[in-house]
Design a protein around this nucleic acid. Structure first.
Lengths: 236, 236
DNA sequence: TACTATAATTGTACCGGTACAATTAATCAA
DNA sequence: TTGATTAATTGTACCGGTACAATTATAGTA
């Protein structure tokens, strides 16, 4: 683990353990430098990470402050998108409906940037948060990159497996969101009525070298899915 | 404008003008350094900005590459959230229904961190993209921070006015999203039926000093609102 | 040809430093 | 007490440098 990531993790841990509130002030840069025994630029980088994550905000001439949002029940949109296995204290479980090797249809192939003759893993799951139906997910993995999957891996975190055992690194993702109505089969999985409202998110996950390796379609239960996004100011 | 922002803007402009595609390679760091006559760290900062924005991705040992998503019609979720006035080539217009000074109710006051006796501006708009109904918006501005608003300002961009004329800087925002059904009045504004599905986003905008100054509730037309979020890999 | 080992390329981590702008605290004047 | 001026605090911009890890290209070997 990189030094600045380590420092960031420790600072975040400190904030959580001491249950700091929005606006609480952290030690000044120079003190953090000596406290974690790293250079200024490393502390700066750690803090920048935490700022992006929505954990702190920095104010020039003033200090470093804790940032919090105060809506329990809202999950971070990104934490549900494979990037973080951490959902706070919530328990995430899965019903695995399908794990199989198939050929992609034209849409899937195009989103993954592969040919319809290439192999993909198809994974179908219903996911639960604290026992309540959360979403229905259908996702496709490029077999050339993810050569093996089974029900145990899929029941747990696919991303941890991919990054751990396969040693590939995930780089970035494009998420496409839209609102619509449930189909009959989707409604069945989610325990809702056909035509009920739903949020659909398609995501294309890329490796750090830019190659797509996972295309996933998630249909959310509209009553159990509330998301928070902590954004940072105008980039430029 | 800061040097690294300037450089970032120029690089992005270069990419757009030359219509570079996903995966196209940019000049190497050292060349960019001399080309823009800035130090390594400034170039690095500029590139990091573009990476966060989803314009490029960097691969150590390899180079700097253009990142693109290929779904026209999808708007960046953040560009619709006040941070950027730029919506590409789309035309954004507004019907202003109300601009008035009132007292906030308990919910609004709590979200803005003020008292129910404090004054707020209430702004109510229906917004259009290329002439099509896009969303219905109800937002509240802390009058102590935004002392004056009128219909002209509101019809245009409130954020440009606030940052320009008032000289305050916007820091960060918390967005809360959920899916639901339209009420009768909402349906009327959006030209839809009652009980139709909708995406609701509440956003609390903070100044860079952490003080909330705008609480806004947006109800989107589900057929005309498709969003893209370009996310970057695991922060840590 | 195909595979392996080596070298060159290239971005990132980390260090330390100066200058500066925004904020806040202290000082002084009315 | 209030308001303005000055000074101290504090994070950020920008500079330049070394070391290194990941990738790609090259050379060598079977």
């Amino acid at each position: 683990m990189l030094k600045y990531q380590q420092v960031a993790a420790e600072i975040e841990q400190y904030i959580n353990q001491h249950d700091l509130k929005q606006g609480d002030k952290l030690p000044v840069l120079e003190q953090l430098m000596s406290q974690y025994a790293v250079s200024k630029s490393t502390i700066t980088k750690a803090l920048e990470l935490l700022e992006r994550k929505g954990v702190i905000f920095q104010l020039r001439g003033s200090g470093i402050f804790v940032r919090r949002h105060n809506r329990p029940g809202y999950m971070s949109l990104f934490s549900t998108q494979g990037f973080k296995s951490n959902l706070g204290d919530r328990v995430l479980t899965s019903d695995v409906l399908d794990v199989s090797v198939t050929k992609p249809d034209a849409t899937v192939a195009q989103n993954l940037g592969i040919d319809v003759t290439d192999d993909v893993y198809r994974v179908e799951r219903v996911r639960f948060v604290d026992g309540e139906v959360f979403c229905y997910e259908e996702s496709y993995y490029v077999k050339a990159i993810v050569p093996y999957l089974n029900r145990e891996i899929v029941a747990d975190s696919i991303f941890d497996y991919v990054q751990g055992a396969l040693g590939v690194t995930i780089g970035f993702s494009d998420m496409y969101m839209q609102v619509g109505r449930l189909t009959e089969t989707e409604a069945g999985y989610l325990g809702l009525q056909m035509e009920d409202p739903t949020l659909r998110i398609e995501t294309i996950f890329h490796l750090s070298n830019g190659k797509p390796f996972d295309y996933s379609r998630i249909t959310y239960h509209y009553e159990h899915s509330q998301f928070v996004v902590q954004a940072n100011g105008p980039y430029m």
